[in-house]
Design a protein around this nucleic acid. Structure first.
Lengths: 123, 123
DNA sequence: TTTATTGTATTATTTAGATAGTACAATAGT
DNA sequence: ACTATTGTACTATCTAAATAATACAATAAA
Protein backbone atom coordinates (compact mmCIF):
# COMPACT_ATOMS: atom_id res chain seq x y z
CA UNK A 1 0.00 0.00 0.00
CA UNK A 2 1.39 3.40 -0.95
CA UNK A 3 2.13 5.84 1.84
CA UNK A 4 0.37 8.66 0.11
CA UNK A 5 2.16 11.55 1.78
CA UNK A 6 1.50 15.09 0.69
CA UNK A 7 3.68 18.15 1.03
CA UNK A 8 1.11 20.36 2.75
CA UNK A 9 1.95 19.07 6.18
CA UNK A 10 5.12 17.92 7.95
CA UNK A 11 5.91 14.44 6.70
CA UNK A 12 6.91 13.04 10.07
CA UNK A 13 3.43 13.94 11.40
CA UNK A 14 1.77 12.17 8.50
CA UNK A 15 3.92 9.11 9.13
CA UNK A 16 2.94 9.08 12.79
CA UNK A 17 -0.72 9.23 11.86
CA UNK A 18 -0.37 6.61 9.17
CA UNK A 19 1.25 4.10 11.51
CA UNK A 20 -1.26 4.89 14.25
CA UNK A 21 -4.03 4.20 11.75
CA UNK A 22 -2.46 0.92 10.71
CA UNK A 23 -2.18 -0.17 14.33
CA UNK A 24 -5.73 0.64 15.38
CA UNK A 25 -7.13 -0.70 12.12
CA UNK A 26 -5.41 -4.03 12.69
CA UNK A 27 -2.94 -3.86 9.83
CA UNK A 28 -0.30 -4.35 12.50
CA UNK A 29 -1.14 -6.59 15.43
CA UNK A 30 0.02 -6.31 19.06
CA UNK A 31 3.54 -7.68 19.35
CA UNK A 32 4.18 -7.54 15.61
CA UNK A 33 7.67 -6.71 14.49
CA UNK A 34 7.92 -3.57 12.43
CA UNK A 35 10.24 -3.36 9.44
CA UNK A 36 13.54 -1.67 10.23
CA UNK A 37 13.89 2.09 10.12
CA UNK A 38 15.76 1.84 6.85
CA UNK A 39 13.19 -0.42 5.25
CA UNK A 40 10.30 1.74 6.34
CA UNK A 41 12.09 4.84 5.11
CA UNK A 42 12.58 3.27 1.72
CA UNK A 43 9.00 2.04 1.55
CA UNK A 44 7.74 5.53 2.34
CA UNK A 45 10.29 7.12 -0.01
CA UNK A 46 11.53 9.24 2.84
CA UNK A 47 14.83 9.97 4.53
CA UNK A 48 15.69 7.55 7.35
CA UNK A 49 16.06 10.49 9.73
CA UNK A 50 12.48 11.49 9.08
CA UNK A 51 11.24 7.97 9.71
CA UNK A 52 13.32 7.72 12.86
CA UNK A 53 11.81 10.94 14.14
CA UNK A 54 8.29 9.63 13.63
CA UNK A 55 9.08 6.30 15.26
CA UNK A 56 10.71 8.01 18.22
CA UNK A 57 7.50 9.91 18.82
CA UNK A 58 5.38 6.76 18.56
CA UNK A 59 7.73 5.23 21.08
CA UNK A 60 7.40 8.19 23.41
CA UNK A 61 3.65 7.66 23.57
CA UNK A 62 4.11 3.97 24.23
CA UNK A 63 2.51 2.66 21.05
CA UNK A 64 5.67 0.89 19.97
CA UNK A 65 8.85 -0.13 21.73
CA UNK A 66 12.30 -1.00 20.48
CA UNK A 67 14.67 -3.73 21.45
CA UNK A 68 18.20 -2.75 20.67
CA UNK A 69 19.28 -4.69 17.55
CA UNK A 70 16.35 -7.09 17.38
CA UNK A 71 13.98 -4.46 16.13
CA UNK A 72 10.87 -2.46 16.88
CA UNK A 73 7.55 -3.90 17.99
CA UNK A 74 3.91 -2.93 18.39
CA UNK A 75 2.78 -2.65 22.00
CA UNK A 76 0.92 -5.63 23.44
CA UNK A 77 -1.30 -3.32 25.45
CA UNK A 78 -4.55 -3.93 23.59
CA UNK A 79 -6.44 -1.62 25.92
CA UNK A 80 -4.18 1.26 24.90
CA UNK A 81 -4.83 0.48 21.26
CA UNK A 82 -8.60 0.39 21.76
CA UNK A 83 -8.46 3.65 23.66
CA UNK A 84 -6.45 5.26 20.88
CA UNK A 85 -8.97 4.07 18.33
CA UNK A 86 -11.83 5.70 20.20
CA UNK A 87 -9.82 8.82 20.78
CA UNK A 88 -8.90 9.21 17.12
CA UNK A 89 -12.49 8.59 16.06
CA UNK A 90 -13.73 11.19 18.53
CA UNK A 91 -11.25 13.74 17.22
CA UNK A 92 -12.11 13.05 13.59
CA UNK A 93 -15.83 13.40 14.24
CA UNK A 94 -15.47 16.58 16.27
CA UNK A 95 -13.21 18.16 13.70
CA UNK A 96 -15.47 17.15 10.85
CA UNK A 97 -18.63 18.51 12.45
CA UNK A 98 -16.84 21.74 13.29
CA UNK A 99 -15.70 22.23 9.72
CA UNK A 100 -19.13 21.50 8.32
CA UNK A 101 -20.62 23.95 10.77
CA UNK A 102 -18.19 26.60 9.58
CA UNK A 103 -19.44 25.87 6.06
CA UNK A 104 -22.95 26.56 7.27
CA UNK A 105 -24.27 23.04 7.80
CA UNK A 106 -25.95 22.16 11.08
CA UNK A 107 -25.29 18.74 12.59
CA UNK A 108 -28.49 17.13 11.33
CA UNK A 109 -28.00 18.62 7.87
CA UNK A 110 -24.51 17.18 7.83
CA UNK A 111 -25.74 13.69 8.64
CA UNK A 112 -28.47 13.91 6.01
CA UNK A 113 -25.98 15.06 3.42
CA UNK A 114 -23.62 12.24 4.33
CA UNK A 115 -26.34 9.65 3.97
CA UNK A 116 -27.18 11.01 0.56
CA UNK A 117 -23.52 10.93 -0.38
CA UNK A 118 -23.16 7.32 0.72
CA UNK A 119 -26.18 6.32 -1.33
CA UNK A 120 -24.40 7.66 -4.36
CA UNK A 121 -26.50 10.70 -5.09
CA UNK A 122 -24.56 13.44 -6.82
CA UNK A 123 -26.53 16.16 -5.20
CA UNK B 1 -13.72 35.96 15.93
CA UNK B 2 -10.18 34.67 16.41
CA UNK B 3 -8.40 33.27 13.38
CA UNK B 4 -7.33 30.15 15.20
CA UNK B 5 -4.31 29.29 13.08
CA UNK B 6 -2.06 26.43 14.05
CA UNK B 7 1.55 25.78 13.17
CA UNK B 8 1.08 22.30 11.75
CA UNK B 9 0.19 23.56 8.30
CA UNK B 10 1.27 26.50 6.11
CA UNK B 11 -0.46 29.60 7.45
CA UNK B 12 -1.31 31.02 4.05
CA UNK B 13 -3.27 27.84 3.26
CA UNK B 14 -5.20 28.09 6.49
CA UNK B 15 -6.01 31.71 5.74
CA UNK B 16 -7.30 30.80 2.29
CA UNK B 17 -9.55 28.14 3.78
CA UNK B 18 -10.75 30.43 6.56
CA UNK B 19 -11.80 33.17 4.15
CA UNK B 20 -13.40 30.64 1.81
CA UNK B 21 -15.38 29.33 4.77
CA UNK B 22 -16.47 32.81 5.76
CA UNK B 23 -17.64 33.53 2.23
CA UNK B 24 -19.67 30.36 1.71
CA UNK B 25 -21.05 30.52 5.25
CA UNK B 26 -22.33 34.04 4.62
CA UNK B 27 -20.06 35.87 7.03
CA UNK B 28 -19.03 37.91 4.00
CA UNK B 29 -21.69 38.69 1.40
CA UNK B 30 -21.26 39.06 -2.37
CA UNK B 31 -19.87 42.49 -3.15
CA UNK B 32 -18.73 43.10 0.43
CA UNK B 33 -15.56 45.07 0.88
CA UNK B 34 -12.83 43.19 2.67
CA UNK B 35 -10.62 44.92 5.22
CA UNK B 36 -7.28 46.02 3.79
CA UNK B 37 -4.36 43.63 3.59
CA UNK B 38 -2.72 45.38 6.51
CA UNK B 39 -5.83 45.24 8.66
CA UNK B 40 -6.44 41.59 7.91
CA UNK B 41 -2.82 40.80 8.63
CA UNK B 42 -3.06 42.49 11.99
CA UNK B 43 -6.37 40.80 12.82
CA UNK B 44 -4.85 37.42 12.02
CA UNK B 45 -1.62 38.28 13.82
CA UNK B 46 0.28 37.48 10.68
CA UNK B 47 2.79 39.18 8.44
CA UNK B 48 1.23 41.30 5.67
CA UNK B 49 3.18 39.34 3.06
CA UNK B 50 1.56 36.13 4.23
CA UNK B 51 -1.90 37.66 4.04
CA UNK B 52 -1.15 39.09 0.61
CA UNK B 53 -0.12 35.66 -0.61
CA UNK B 54 -3.38 34.13 0.55
CA UNK B 55 -5.47 36.91 -0.98
CA UNK B 56 -3.62 36.66 -4.27
CA UNK B 57 -4.57 33.01 -4.46
CA UNK B 58 -8.22 33.74 -3.65
CA UNK B 59 -8.11 36.28 -6.43
CA UNK B 60 -6.59 33.82 -8.86
CA UNK B 61 -9.56 31.50 -8.35
CA UNK B 62 -12.00 34.40 -8.84
CA UNK B 63 -13.49 34.39 -5.36
CA UNK B 64 -12.41 37.96 -4.70
CA UNK B 65 -11.25 40.80 -6.88
CA UNK B 66 -9.30 43.95 -6.14
CA UNK B 67 -9.79 47.48 -7.31
CA UNK B 68 -6.54 49.36 -7.18
CA UNK B 69 -6.66 51.70 -4.15
CA UNK B 70 -10.34 51.32 -3.34
CA UNK B 71 -9.89 47.87 -1.91
CA UNK B 72 -10.74 44.22 -2.28
CA UNK B 73 -14.21 42.79 -2.72
CA UNK B 74 -16.08 39.50 -2.57
CA UNK B 75 -17.25 38.24 -5.96
CA UNK B 76 -20.87 38.92 -6.88
CA UNK B 77 -21.08 35.57 -8.64
CA UNK B 78 -23.44 33.83 -6.24
CA UNK B 79 -23.46 30.69 -8.38
CA UNK B 80 -19.74 30.36 -7.95
CA UNK B 81 -20.13 30.70 -4.20
CA UNK B 82 -22.83 28.04 -4.07
CA UNK B 83 -20.73 25.73 -6.17
CA UNK B 84 -17.77 26.23 -3.90
CA UNK B 85 -19.91 25.44 -0.88
CA UNK B 86 -21.03 22.13 -2.38
CA UNK B 87 -17.51 21.34 -3.49
CA UNK B 88 -16.01 21.98 -0.06
CA UNK B 89 -18.72 19.93 1.62
CA UNK B 90 -18.14 17.06 -0.77
CA UNK B 91 -14.41 17.14 -0.09
CA UNK B 92 -14.88 17.25 3.67
CA UNK B 93 -17.27 14.32 3.64
CA UNK B 94 -15.11 12.20 1.37
CA UNK B 95 -12.00 12.90 3.38
CA UNK B 96 -13.79 12.19 6.65
CA UNK B 97 -15.24 8.88 5.49
CA UNK B 98 -11.87 7.85 4.15
CA UNK B 99 -10.13 8.59 7.43
CA UNK B 100 -12.76 6.74 9.43
CA UNK B 101 -12.42 3.79 7.09
CA UNK B 102 -8.70 3.75 7.67
CA UNK B 103 -9.48 3.61 11.40
CA UNK B 104 -11.59 0.56 10.73
CA UNK B 105 -15.09 2.03 10.69
CA UNK B 106 -17.43 1.23 7.81
CA UNK B 107 -19.65 3.96 6.48
CA UNK B 108 -22.77 2.93 8.34
CA UNK B 109 -20.80 2.47 11.55
CA UNK B 110 -19.44 5.95 11.13
CA UNK B 111 -22.88 7.47 10.80
CA UNK B 112 -24.15 5.58 13.81
CA UNK B 113 -21.20 6.70 15.87
CA UNK B 114 -21.73 10.29 14.77
CA UNK B 115 -25.37 10.21 15.78
CA UNK B 116 -24.42 8.90 19.18
CA UNK B 117 -21.81 11.61 19.49
CA UNK B 118 -24.30 14.32 18.62
CA UNK B 119 -26.73 13.03 21.22
CA UNK B 120 -24.03 13.55 23.81
CA UNK B 121 -23.19 9.98 24.64
CA UNK B 122 -19.64 9.56 25.79
CA UNK B 123 -19.35 6.14 24.35
C1' DT C 1 34.31 -15.52 16.88
C1' DT C 2 32.83 -13.09 13.07
C1' DT C 3 29.38 -10.68 10.45
C1' DA C 4 25.37 -8.39 9.36
C1' DT C 5 21.54 -5.96 11.06
C1' DT C 6 19.51 -3.26 14.48
C1' DG C 7 18.51 1.36 16.71
C1' DT C 8 20.62 5.63 17.46
C1' DA C 9 23.46 9.91 17.13
C1' DT C 10 25.84 13.67 14.78
C1' DT C 11 26.87 17.33 11.53
C1' DA C 12 26.05 19.79 7.35
C1' DT C 13 23.15 21.42 3.63
C1' DT C 14 18.85 22.54 1.27
C1' DT C 15 14.23 24.19 0.91
C1' DA C 16 9.73 26.36 1.86
C1' DG C 17 7.32 29.21 4.67
C1' DA C 18 7.17 33.20 7.50
C1' DT C 19 8.86 37.53 9.00
C1' DA C 20 10.89 42.23 8.67
C1' DG C 21 11.45 46.39 6.45
C1' DT C 22 10.88 49.28 2.81
C1' DA C 23 9.22 51.22 -1.41
C1' DC C 24 6.12 52.70 -5.19
C1' DA C 25 2.10 53.64 -8.17
C1' DA C 26 -2.80 54.56 -8.26
C1' DT C 27 -6.71 57.00 -6.62
C1' DA C 28 -10.50 58.14 -3.34
C1' DG C 29 -11.37 61.74 -0.22
C1' DT C 30 -10.28 66.16 1.47
C1' DA D 1 -3.48 70.21 -5.34
C1' DC D 2 -2.64 67.47 -1.31
C1' DT D 3 -2.89 63.47 1.68
C1' DA D 4 -3.86 59.09 3.26
C1' DT D 5 -4.98 54.58 1.99
C1' DT D 6 -5.00 51.06 -1.28
C1' DG D 7 -2.74 46.97 -3.63
C1' DT D 8 1.62 45.43 -4.95
C1' DA D 9 6.64 44.44 -5.31
C1' DC D 10 11.22 43.58 -3.67
C1' DT D 11 15.17 42.06 -0.84
C1' DA D 12 16.99 40.14 3.23
C1' DT D 13 16.77 37.23 7.18
C1' DC D 14 15.03 33.47 10.17
C1' DT D 15 13.23 28.95 11.23
C1' DA D 16 11.62 24.23 10.93
C1' DA D 17 11.47 20.32 8.18
C1' DA D 18 13.77 17.33 5.22
C1' DT D 19 17.74 15.45 3.14
C1' DA D 20 22.49 13.69 2.87
C1' DA D 21 26.24 11.29 4.59
C1' DT D 22 28.39 8.98 8.19
C1' DA D 23 29.37 6.75 12.38
C1' DC D 24 28.89 3.76 16.45
C1' DA D 25 27.26 0.42 19.98
C1' DA D 26 24.61 -3.68 20.79
C1' DT D 27 23.40 -8.24 19.62
C1' DA D 28 21.11 -11.85 16.83
C1' DA D 29 22.60 -15.03 13.52
C1' DA D 30 26.05 -17.44 11.09
Amino acid sequence: MPWNLDSDRPIFLQIIEKIQMDIVAGVYHPGDKLPSVRELAQAAAVNPNTMQKALAELERTGLVYSQRTSGRFITEDTAMIQELKSELARELIAEFLEHMQKLGFEEQETIDLMEKTIRGETK
